[in-house]
Computed example of a mutant assay.
Amino acid sequence: MPAEDRTDADLLRMAATDPEAFGRFYRRHVRWVLALCARRCGDAELAADVTAETFATVLAQRDRFDPDRGSAGNWLFQIALNKLADAHRRGAAERRARDRLGIPPIALTEEDVERIDELASLAGAGDAAALLAALPDDQRRAVEARVVHERGYDEIAAELALSPAAVRQRVSRGLTALRARLRPEGGER
Rank of each mutant, 00 (worst) to 15 (best):
E159N: 02
H88I: 08
A15Q: 15
A128I: 14
A145Q: 08
E4V: 15
A80R: 09
G126P: 03
H88A: 11
L160V: 03
D86S: 13
F65N: 06
I79G: 01
R146M: 00
D5Q: 11
P67N: 03
L122S: 00
T57A: 13
E185C: 01
G73K: 09
G124D: 02
P105Y: 04
L34A: 13
L175W: 10
F25I: 11
T17R: 14
V33Y: 09
L160K: 08
L81F: 08
R95M: 11
S121Q: 12
S121N: 13
E45L: 02
T57I: 00
E150P: 00
A85E: 01
E20K: 15
R62Y: 04
F55T: 00
E155N: 01
A97I: 12
E4C: 12
Y153V: 01
R31K: 10
V143A: 08
D5C: 05
L36Q: 14
A21M: 01
A128P: 02
L178T: 07
I106F: 13
W75K: 09
T17M: 15
R173V: 01
H149P: 00
R40W: 05
G124F: 03
T57W: 12
F65Q: 05
R62I: 01
V113Y: 10
P104E: 06
L132H: 06
I116C: 13
L34C: 08
R40K: 04
L122Y: 02
G102C: 08
A92D: 12
R146T: 00
L101P: 09
L132S: 06
P67A: 01
A52K: 09
R24M: 15
D127F: 08
D99L: 09
V50L: 15
G174M: 02
D43G: 01
D137F: 01
I156S: 06
R13N: 14
A107F: 07
A48P: 03
E114K: 07
T176A: 11
R6M: 15
A142S: 14
G73D: 12
R27C: 10
D137N: 04
E150S: 08
L122P: 00
Y153E: 03
V171M: 09
A158F: 06
A44E: 11
R168V: 10
V50P: 09
F65Y: 14
T17A: 15
V30I: 14
V50R: 10
I103M: 13
A125T: 13
Q78S: 13
D8V: 04
D68I: 00
A129R: 12
S163C: 05
L178H: 09
Q61L: 11
D5T: 05
I79Y: 10
A157G: 12
A128M: 08
L76V: 11
I103Y: 07
I106D: 05
L175A: 13
F77Q: 04
Q61I: 00
G186M: 07
E144F: 00
A107M: 08
A123V: 10
